[in-house]
């Protein structure tokens, strides 16, 4: 083992070493640039409000305080937004997964009579879309505006996710389906007990795509449900809050403006609210990140 690596090292000349050192330095810098703003937000969120306004906080809070989190948690809108967001993420992801998987199952059956025409029908939807206003009018006509269902139903089937799932299902050997059919299993039975268990990794990928989309969405809340405050989402509340902070910063100078309690300032509350909304993603990320890559490479390269 040692001999091998020594042999490899001896084959590298000066230029190679220079490249390796430069490349490593660059990639380390890249990681710092990626992580620093997030860690800095974390540090600011745990800092005392008035102190944070002075700036100059890097990776460690200067004057530790939990006031900003206290203020965020007790914000009425953010609480309601969190409940709605969790609900839409759980319900929306489960339903979308079933809907996308079932369609992918149908279009990946080799014997299915309308296989290519049904695929084409859905691929078209990836490129031609009606746009914001026809969409809004449609939701109004279907009486979906000002309802929770507008978060779930319109985006239920996505052609991109169906393509990812279909590609994976097509790569499974036909013999599974054939032997099940010989045993008298119908298509639904094959979907539920044979194909789905084999598709667990790709199901995880698609579920994560959909879940992140739900967690981060705010535009549908603003466009369809702005009149129903009980249907607000976490990100939309954050957006409204950031917007109001910017307005007040525009009027007064950015420093000095404090809200009710003297230890809470927009700078720290903004940081704390950002951290709260990204927390679930950051916490689950190390465990789930490998599924993201699997899905993208299945759907992209093999397609």
């Amino acid at each position: 083992m040692i001999g091998k690596s020594e042999k490899k090292k001896s084959m590298m000349n000066g230029w190679d070493w220079a490249f390796v050192i430069c490349n490593t330095t660059f990639l380390v810098l890249f990681c710092i640039v990626t992580l620093y703003p997030i860690l800095n937000t974390l540090a600011v969120s745990f800092n005392d409000g008035l102190d944070a306004v002075k700036g100059g906080i890097h990776l460690i809070p200067r004057k530790f305080s939990l006031r900003a989190y206290d203020a965020v948690i007790h914000k009425q809108g953010l609480q309601q937004g969190a409940i709605v967001t969790v609900a839409r993420t759980v319900i929306g992801t489960l339903l979308a997964l079933v809907a996308n998987a079932l369609l992918a199952f149908v279009v990946s059956r080799r014997r299915f009579l309308f296989r290519s025409s049904l695929s084409f029908f859905w691929v078209v939807t990836m490129y031609a879309s009606g746009g914001m206003i026809p969409g809004l009018i449609l939701m109004k006509n279907l009486h979906l505006t000002n309802t929770f269902l507008v978060y779930i139903i319109p985006g239920l089937v996505s052609a991109f996710n169906v393509l990812v799932l279909r590609t994976y299902m097509e790569s499974l050997p036909d013999s599974y389906e054939e032997s099940a059919q010989l045993d008298g299993a119908g298509y639904m039975r094959i979907f539920v007990s044979i194909i789905s268990p084999l598709c667990k990794p790709v199901y995880a990928t698609v579920a994560l795509f959909v879940a992140v989309g739900h967690w981060n969405s705010w535009f549908d809340a603003m466009l369809y449900n702005r009149n129903r405050t009980e249907l607000t989402t976490l990100q939309y509340e954050l957006q409204k809050y950031l917007n109001s902070v910017m307005q007040t910063q525009g009027n007064t100078s950015s420093s000095g403006k404090t809200s009710s309690s003297s230890q809470v300032t927009p700078v720290t509350v903004r940081a704390a609210a950002s951290i709260v909304t990204m927390l679930p993603i950051i916490m689950l990320y190390p465990f789930l990140q490998r599924y993201f890559v699997t899905g993208l490479t299945i759907g992209g390269v093999k397609e």
Binding site: L118, P134, L138, Y187
Partner: peptide, 26 residues
């Protein structure tokens, strides 16, 4: 294939409503 055909029909109805109807909105 009747099961597949019924499911496919449902998806076509859904697709027409949520993706093709807005095109008429043009």
């Amino acid at each position: 294939q009747s099961v597949l055909l019924i499911i496919a029909a449902l998806y076509v109805v859904y697709g027409i409503i949520f993706y093709y109807l807005p095109l008429v909105g043009w």
